[in-house]
Every structure is written in structure tokens, then in C-alpha cells.
Amino acid sequence: MKVLFITYGLSIAGGNRAIFEVANRLSDRGYYVEVLALGGDHSWFDVKVSVKYLELPKRMRTLLRAYSLIKYLRVKEYKYIDVNTFAKRLGFRVDLIRPLAEAIPNNFDAAVATYYPTALSLWLSRHEGLRLYFVQDFPELASADGHYGLRLWDLTLRIPFNAFLAVSTYIKNLILERQYNAKILVTGAGVDINVFKPSKDKLVDVKGKYKVMTIIGSNPWKGADVAIRVLSEVSRKLPIHAILVGDREFVDLLIKSVKHSFTYTVFSNVPDDLLARLYSSADAFLFTSYVEGFGLPPLEAMASGTPVVTTDCLGNRDYVIDGVNALVAKPGDVEGLANSLIKILMDEKLRERLIENGLKTAKQWSWDKVVDKFEEAIKGESQ
């Protein structure tokens, strides 16, 4: 069978990693798989399938680069403006959904939308095979493109696709709120325990200090400012060195805004093998998102033998159990997160219990199980 994944962009992101993991493994099982993308660069991942990029008109490419730059710089006026409104202010209209719809071929047995604009493109396309929607996005993510983005996201969950593939129970419930009789399979996400595993090879080794790793994302729901404030709070009581994964310029700017006494190292554009070594180098992993569709990093940390402190960010409820395989605090609770982090660093028995149970948890979440759900949707709906 032939399967097409339709993507919006292929920059480094957890959602894109999930797409590539599934695409590669479907290919290993004998499927012919292609990925169609509006833009981006997939060189950061070892993709085994064909990736084709839609060539947009020069004026539209220029617009998108300008829009991305303005969003990155967070110019106040455009902080939550969608690309269509941005184009209108410049005097012309942009439509990314229809060109992508027209580029979707009709010679695939199944086509999988992977982000809310691609869901609309798939629905408007001439594709006659199975129409599936792999849903990883949530309201806060769509809101980054303004009210326009949020309305489109809501609309896509009301479209009668052959089946929805929800990355978590949280996402499943969002779909059911809008379409109570939708066919939904919860795929979960996976972790490759051949890559993410305990290691004695410490990439960061700072003597006399506890090492705490966290991932710093620039999107508001990632809680980056919370992470820095937690680290600052902990550093008042314990000597710590922070392992920060994220854009260096953004991280440096964020840290300057908070009075702190911890040292830190920044790693940017990190491939999986390096990320795994960073997890293993840390004495604890801190995750501060307000909301996530699934929230894969804590699971990767568990697989790497690193105890986890995380927020209750909804998507991670499928695998995180407070006091069993992680310590959990409310989103934005700096004091609660800091106290949990101190407990993990100071209580050796607690650390050992969380590490042991975390390793057991990680083994239950494989990418092969995720692909099983995709196969169930593809084969079940094609019969």
C-alpha cells in the first residue's frame, strides 16, 4: 500500500520527529511512503522515505520568511497575528492551504494530515483514498497563529475523516468534544530505547554541583521562564549546573531577565544521539510546559535513567504517575517544581525508585506500538 504524509514544515520539532519515526517504520513493514512538505529542512533526522517539497511562488516565500522572523523576534504588534492577516496588512492575500491541496496526488491508498492546515488541504484535495488525520496539536499551539488559526484548528476536528489518530487521551477528548461519533485511535508516542538509554559517558561533568537538564522552548506554553525561575530558586539552596537545550540567543536573553546563581551550558540543534547523552549526564530532568499534546521529553529522560520533575501538562497523563515514575506539579508552580527538584537531588532512595520505574515505563512506549495503530487505521478503513 502507498501512504502519503502531508506536513506543513519540517523543522526540528517533536511532532515532526513522530511523523518521521512512523514513516520510517511503515516503510520497514513494506509500505511505500512519501512525505509532502510546504517547507523546512529534514536533514536533522535520518529519514528513509522520499520527502518532496512544494515549491511556492517567490513572493509567498519572501512573505513567509518575513512572517517567521517577526514571530521569532516577538514584535509586540504581531505576536499573535496569523499569516493571512499579516499578508493583508502588506497589501496582498496569501493562501497556503489551497496550493498544498492541489499538490496532493491521487495515487495513494491513504493520505495522512499531520497539522491543522494540512487537514484542510487534504479535505479540499482530489485524493480519493483514505483520509486520516494524525492530531498532535492543541488550542494553545493553534493560537500562535491568532484567532484565525484557532478557528481553523477547531474546524478540522469537525471534519468527518475516515479516522483520527490522536497522540494522547487528552487529544482524543478534544476531538470527541467536537465530533462525538468520530472514529479515534490513540497512538501514543514512542521512545527508541536503543538510543535513549542509561550511559556512564557523561557529556557534561561539573564537579561539586548537581546537574539539572531542561529544554527551553520559545513558545509561550513551554514555560521557559518558569524553568529558569525554578533553577534560580533551587540554586539558592543547592549548587547546580543547568544543561539547557534550546536556541542560545533566546536562552541567554531569558537568563538575563532572572537573578540567578547557577552556572549553565547551552546546546542547540541537538540530534537524538547527543540528546540521549545529555539526559544521561543529568542528575534530574525538569519539564515545565503548561500544555502538550503528549510531551515526549520526560519519557526520553526516563528511558535514559534520569529522574523527572514535570508539570501536569495534560498530554503526559497517559504515562506519568506522580510519586511512581516522576514528581508532578501544577503548571506555573515555581515553588512546587523547585521543592520537587530538591527532593529528587537530595533523596537517594526516591531517586532510585523513580529511575527504576521510569525505565519500566519507557519500555512500554515503543514506536512500533505507535505504528501498529497506524496500520490498524489503514487496514481497517480500507477493507
Score class of each variant (00 low, 15 high):
G246I: 10
I70S: 12
L345V: 14
E55D: 09
V75I: 15
I81S: 04
D273H: 10
T118Q: 03
A113C: 06
A101F: 13
L341K: 05
G293C: 10
I255S: 00
K256G: 01
L165K: 00
I342Y: 06
F86N: 05
K48H: 02
L354D: 07
M302S: 06
S43N: 09
S143L: 15
V135Y: 08
V83L: 14
Y116D: 06
F294V: 13
A66F: 12
K48A: 03
A23R: 06
L278V: 10
N357E: 11
G223E: 00
A282R: 08
R29P: 09
H127D: 07
A144M: 15
A284S: 10
D252Y: 12
S27P: 01
T118N: 08
V226G: 12
L155D: 06
V206S: 06
A224C: 06
R61C: 13
D82E: 01
V47I: 13
L350F: 09
S218D: 04
F267K: 02
S121P: 11
P271T: 09
Y72D: 09
R98S: 14
S199D: 02
G40W: 13
P198V: 07
I228C: 13
V51A: 08
R17T: 05
E300D: 02
P105H: 11
A301W: 06
L10G: 08
S281A: 11
N181I: 10
P271Y: 03
E21C: 02
F250I: 15
A326Y: 08
V206Q: 08
D145Y: 13
D201Y: 11
S235Q: 11
N173R: 04
G358E: 06
F108T: 12
R25L: 15
R353K: 14
G293A: 13
V309W: 04
P105D: 04
P105Q: 09
F20V: 15
L327T: 11
S268W: 05
D137Y: 10
I216S: 00
V320D: 04
L120R: 11
R126F: 12
L73F: 06
I255G: 00
S121C: 13
L73V: 14
E352I: 10
